[in-house]
Computed example of a mutant assay.
Amino acid sequence: VANFTGTPSPSPTITPTPTSSPTSPPASPWKAGTYYRVGDLVTYNGSTYRCLAAHTAYPGWEPPNYDFLWARV
């Protein structure tokens, strides 16, 4: 027979750790004349790219042509 003195302490609450990262904002189609910020996502020819350097896009500056501006994700 157990003899308890005082108030029993509550059981610890277990909080599950999320297994997925927050959802990234949706990518929009790449478009010349658009100002892109670092981290912006675009789609071009069915692929998604992340902007590596802030810039205004010009015709011919499509993501696959400039790997210093865009990284395929």
Rank of each mutant, 00 (worst) to 15 (best):
V1A: 15
V1G: 15
A2C: 11
N3Y: 10
F4R: 15
F4K: 15
F4Q: 14
T5L: 08
T7I: 01
T7C: 02
T7D: 09
T7W: 11
P8R: 04
P8H: 11
S9H: 08
S9R: 14
P10A: 15
P10H: 03
S11E: 10
P12M: 03
T13H: 13
T13P: 09
T13V: 14
I14K: 12
I14P: 04
T15V: 13
P16N: 11
T17R: 13
T17W: 04
T19H: 11
T19R: 12
P22E: 10
P22F: 08
P22L: 12
P22T: 02
T23V: 10
S24W: 03
S24N: 01
P25V: 08
P26Y: 06
A27D: 05
S28A: 14
S28D: 02
S28I: 07
P29G: 09
P29N: 03
P29K: 08
W30E: 02
W30K: 10
K31L: 06
K31G: 14
A32L: 08
A32S: 07
G33V: 07
Y35N: 10
Y36G: 03
Y36R: 13
R37T: 01
R37E: 11
V38Q: 02
G39W: 10
D40R: 10
D40T: 06
L41Q: 13
L41I: 01
V42I: 15
V42E: 03
T43P: 02
T43V: 10
Y44F: 14
Y44T: 05
Y44D: 02
Y44G: 07
Y44Q: 10
N45D: 12
N45H: 09
G46E: 06
G46W: 06
S47H: 15
T48D: 00
T48K: 08
Y49V: 00
Y49Q: 05
Y49E: 07
Y49C: 02
Y49W: 08
R50V: 06
R50M: 01
C51V: 11
C51Q: 07
L52H: 05
L52A: 07
L52W: 09
A53E: 08
A54W: 05
A54I: 00
H55Q: 10
H55S: 08
H55K: 04
H55T: 05
T56S: 03
T56A: 13
T56G: 12
T56P: 06
T56V: 00
A57S: 04
Y58W: 02
Y58N: 15
Y58H: 11
Y58D: 07
G60R: 00
G60Y: 07
W61T: 04
W61A: 07
E62T: 04
P63N: 03
P63V: 09
P63K: 10
P64A: 00
Y66G: 04
D67H: 06
D67S: 06
D67V: 07
D67R: 13
F68R: 02
F68I: 00
W70G: 03
A71N: 04
A71Q: 12
A71E: 08
A71K: 09
V73S: 12
V73P: 09
V73T: 06
